[in-house]
Write a protein that binds this DNA or RNA. Structure first.
Length: 923
RNA sequence: GCCCAGGUGGUGGAAUUGGUAGACACGCAGGACUUAAAAUCCUGUGGCCGUUUAGGCCGUGCGGGUUCAAGUCCCGCCCUGGGUACCA
């Protein structure tokens, strides 16, 4: 081939890889395994843009590198195919979401293959495929059939719980269960009807139905999980979200809260990712304290992390939703309290957001007694106390809590200072820890010491216990939508949910006529005709949320076509956990938490061999759009080049970035793109029309979407791959711009030119390489290998450029050098590497080539040029043989003319010689 | 408010973790080839002073500090991005 034709080369090798199943990976005990995973995409109608492949290319480089290193690499791809957009489209057009989804997947696959990603497509999964969701339903069934035992600290079969109830009741059972679970003995249990037992067991199951306060999104007609709501609006579509109580399936993730936090330190994840999960789970240590209500036979239990400030309590607060509000309100305050509670409950999430920091509350008329002081303090109701956290009751210490302080100041409640140093402060909450004052028996202690002392005291006296609290709530698992996995549950006459037997799985989605809720407000599945279990029992009508299918797909890849198990024991054992997982940070508190939860559960049940699914996690940054802006005179069809805009009164106009190159507008293309302006005038500078730019989200609206297909068409997939890596560190968010892409394209042409001259004649010869040639090669081998281990691909691309430039300068066309260089380069630019590899006479794919070993002896220097400094300022450079001793170097430096001049006759105080680094002479 | 991450030329970004700041690339300027353009190749390119040369001074958000030596470590600020928010 005379010149490098990327289209031909790339098409040829992509076909070769697919036809020969080059990337197929199956259990092979003779080879070490390596599992590289990408977060699988939701196939949207818009197709991939140039930002998506960033992570895919990085993981592909690692996969290909590891293959050359002799690993058996599992590198799969699939599609998170259930979801809202396809359903919304179905509502508008009537087209079944399965069709839309299949079309979108086809497009995605074509695009992914065009980038030359080395996936084993035989392992592809689609979450909407019944063969796949059969096992999603199966995992749901397993969760339904288990409870969480805090004593053994793992999930156990519900049978063990039933056996325990039959013998001893639930008193001694330390289980994760609903807060309102009654305490009973064996006799009570054994007397219960079958339905009564079933009902009670629901309080223990790891997935269970409950009336939960949920995020209801009227526009989408469904509930959303906490992580799907951003600032009171739905993450998808940006519709307002309100709080509503509804019957929902829940997942008892709180049972795993402690292990989900604890295991984080075993993982190789970024600190910020771990922080996000830690904060989301929100583990806090403290205690529960009982406060007797004055004149009533009721005690209120509050949770606090600061029992040391107990002597500073001046009032107590109840959440408006608290169940005892009515009972604890005195007659004279009833009207006021009820009005306040009504208002607080009806307020939407968004109103609460906007009113944050405004103080509001109301006095109940009741008093409680501080168990430490026997003091009588007033009981208030205020919406700054959340019903869902702790016990919904707070002991208020205005002197050390900002909110309590604001509230007390506003309502004229007393402030009692209990920490030394706060006495003279206007705002005592500025100091939160220190020596205790005015605090009975803990006076003089340090606050951390006092925490323990008060808890000990409360436990001894029987009005308190140490307690760990979590911010995380059980996850809502129901969606009032059609396009999701049906929940494998039916209801018997008594209204109790029963599990569908495993032999009935998958429970497939029934066809429906319209993808909307029924007239009576039931989810779309309510429209399915004759959709009943055994012809009479109603199925659950909600479907599973998007995260159901994505919480275990990484396990399915290991054994994707197994129809007897979700993954075989052998495959699960062999592939173990994911060695490298690449994806965006947006999944920190959703997907990555739920997956860890399900994986832990499956581990407890013995189905997988590892506690944590993702050993190493890397978050690729987002690629933002780089919009181009042209300036136009306000009332004329005249455009002004950016440099001249100051002279005129101009308006901004977004122009399609695909007709702008390096900020220079292609005027002819513009006229075609915007026919309205085909006769417009253009005022140029230096014969060019320059645009300004702005960094914005990549979106059709700003005409800044760059499609990888277009880049591949123009430059080729290898250039796209290398350029995306060259753009900067993988974790960094950066705007897409093509400013430097010519540099990468040029590099590939130079590489080609090492193999072929302009007429297509091979230049490669079998000569013995010179020392410098070896040096250039081995420096690259070393650097690139280190870079891939650290995932800093941008510097590798630079290194390749340096190497090829050096070989060009040396006029080196030696087979021995070029061959090895190709292997090192092949993960980055696989198509051209394969082509040139073949041109050297190899018949097997470069995938099977052995990665060249780095040999230090080639890059060893026998002398080193020391920068020599005087008082820390660089003055000259002197070369020394490496075996020179520091003493000899020092003597020679002091003899050097330049240094002598700087010493100016004075003798140095000391001379610092750092081998292979620097010499510093201190005067 | 709290918790992270970051701030280096005209631009994207390097810097072996305390040791020659600005690798590599883009852009720009000049040159070669060409009737011309494209492509390709060569040279220069942080700022200031110095006519040139030699050279010098200043420079990694700002202000201090530690050190023979600081982009890197410590203290105090300022800005940008991400997460989270009445979580007791």
């Amino acid at each position: 081939m005379a010149e490098y034709k990327h289209k031909e080369v790339e098409r040829k090798w992509q076909r070769y890889w697919a036809d020969n199943k080059i990337f197929e990976a199956n259990v092979d005990h003779n080879k070490p395994k390596f599992y590289v995973l990408d977060m699988f995409p939701y196939p949207s109608g818009a197709g991939l843009h140039v930002g998506h492949p960033l992570g895919y290319i990085a993981s592909d480089i690692v996969s290909r590198f590891k293959r050359n290193k002799g690993y058996n690499v599992l590198h799969p791809m699939g599609f998170d195919a259930f979801g809202l957009p396809a359903e919304q489209y179905a509502i508008q057009t009537g087209q079944h979401p399965a069709l839309t989804t299949a079309e979108n997947i086809k497009r995605y696959k074509d695009q992914l293959q065009g980038i030359g990603l080395s996936y084993d497509w035989d392992k592809e999964v689609r979450t909407c495929d019944p063969k796949y969701y059969k096992w999603t339903q199966w995992i749901f069934s397993q969760l339904f059939s288990c409870w969480y035992n805090y004593d053994s600290n793992k999930a156990e079969s519900i049978e063990t719980l039933i056996a325990a109830f039959e013998k001893k009741g639930n008193k001694k059972i330390n289980a994760a269960c609903d807060d309102d679970t009654p305490i009973f003995d064996a006799a009570y249990w054994n007397r219960l009807s079958e339905a009564g037992k079933a009902k009670l067991l629901l309080k223990y199951r790891l997935t269970y139905p409950a009336d939960a306060l949920v995020n209801w999104c009227p526009a989408l007609g469904t509930v959303l999980a906490n992580d799907e709501v951003k600032d009171g609006f739905s993450e998808r579509g940006g519709h307002p979200v309100e709080r509503k109580k509804m019957r929902q399936w829940m997942m008892r993730i709180t049972a795993y809260a402690d292990r989900l936090v604890g295991n984080l330190n075993k993982l190789d994840w970024s600190a910020s990712m771990k922080d996000m999960q830690t904060n989301w789970i929100g583990k806090s240590y403290g205690c529960e304290l009982d406060f007797e209500v004055y004149d009533k036979d009721i005690a209120l239990t509050c949770f606090t992390t600061r029992p040391d400030t107990i002597f500073g309590v001046t009032y107590m607060v109840l959440a408006p939703e608290h169940e005892l509000v009515r009972e604890l309100t005195t007659e004279e305050h009833r009207e006021e309290v009820e009005a306040y509670v009504q208002k607080a409950i009806n307020r939407s999430e968004r109103e609460r957001m906007s009113e944050i920091k405004t103080v509001s509350g109301v006095f109940t008329g009741s008093f409680v007694i501080n168990p430490f002081t026997n003091e009588k303090v007033p009981l208030w109701i205020a919406d700054y106390v959340l019903a869902g956290y702790g016990t919904g009751v707070v002991m208020a210490v205005p002197s050390s809590d900002d909110r309590d302080f604001r509230f007390a100041t506003y309502y004229g409640l007393p402030v009692k200072r209990v920490i030394a140093g706060t006495e003279d402060l206007k705002d005592p909450t500025e100091i939160k820890h220190g020596k205790m004052i005015n605090s009975g028996f803990i006076t003089g202690m340090d606050s951390s010491e006092a925490v323990h002392a008060t808890i000990d005291y409360a436990e001894k006296e029987g009005f308190g216990t140490a307690k760990v609290n979590y911010r995380i709530r059980d996850a809502v698992f129901s969606r009032q939508r059609y396009w999701g996995e049906p929940v494998p549950v039916y209801f018997t006459e008594d209204g109790i949910p029963r599990l569908l037997p495993e032999s009935e799985l998958p429970l497939e989605l029934p066809p429906i006529d319209e993808y909307l809720p029924t007239k009576s407000g039931e989810p779309p599945l309510g429209r399915a005709k004759k959709w009943l279990y055994k012809g009479k029992y109603a199925y659950e009508l909600t479907t599973m949320p998007g995260w159901a299918g994505s919480s275990w797909y990484f396990l399915r890849y290991m054994d994707a076509s197994n129809d007897r198990e979700f993954v075989s024991k052998e495959a699960a054992e062999y592939w173990n956990s994911v060695d490298l997982y690449i994806g965006g940070t947006e999944h920190a508190t959703g997907h990555l938490l739920y997956s860890r939860f399900w994986n832990l559960f499956l581990y407890d049940r013995g189905y997988v061999t590892h506690e944590e699914p993702f050993q190493k996690l890397v978050n690729q940054g987002m690629i933002q759009g780089r919009s181009n802006i042209a300036y136009k005179l306000k009332d004329e069809h005249k455009f002004i080049s950016a440099g001249l805009k100051k002279k005129y009164d101009v308006m901004e106009l977004h122009v399609d970035v695909n007709i702008v190159h390096n900020d220079i507008l292609d005027v002819e293309a513009f006229k075609k793109w915007m026919p309205d302006y085909k006769d417009a005038e253009f005022e140029l500078e230096d014969g060019k029309f320059r645009c300004d730019f702005a960094i914005e989200k990549m979106s059709k609206r700003w005409y800044n979407v760059v499609n990888p297909d277009d880049v591949i068409e123009k430059y080729g997939a290898d250039t796209l791959r290398m350029y995306e890596m060259f753009l900067g560190p993988i974790e960094l968010s950066k705007p897409w711009n093509t400013h430097g892409i010519d540099g990468v394209a040029k590099f590939l042409r130079r590489l080609w030119a090492l193999f072929y001259d302009a007429d297509g004649k091979s230049l490669v010869n079998a000569g013995k390489p010179k020392a410098e040639e070896y040096k250039a090669l081995h420096k690259t081998i070393q650097k690139v290998e280190m870079d891939i281990e650290n995932l800093s691909f941008n510097t590798s691309v630079s290194e390749f450029m340096i190497c090829v430039n050096a070989l060009t300068q040396l006029n080196c066309h030696k087979k021995e050098i070029l061959e090895k260089l190709l292997i090192v380069l092949s993960p980055f630019a696989p198509h051209i590497a394969e082509e040139l590899w073949q041109s050297l006479g190899h018949e097997e794919s470069i995938i099977h080539a052995e990665y060249p070993e780095f040999d230090e002896s080639y890059i060893k220097e026998d002398e080193y040029e020391f920068p020599v400094m005087v008082n820390g300022k660089m003055r000259t450079k002197i070369k020394f043989a490496l075996d020179k001793s520091p003493g000899e170097i020092e003597n020679e430096v002091l003899e050097n003319d330049v240094i002598k001049k700087w010493l100016d006759g004075k003798s140095p105080k000391k001379v610092i010689v750092v081998p292979k680094k620097i010499v510093n002479v201190v005067v």
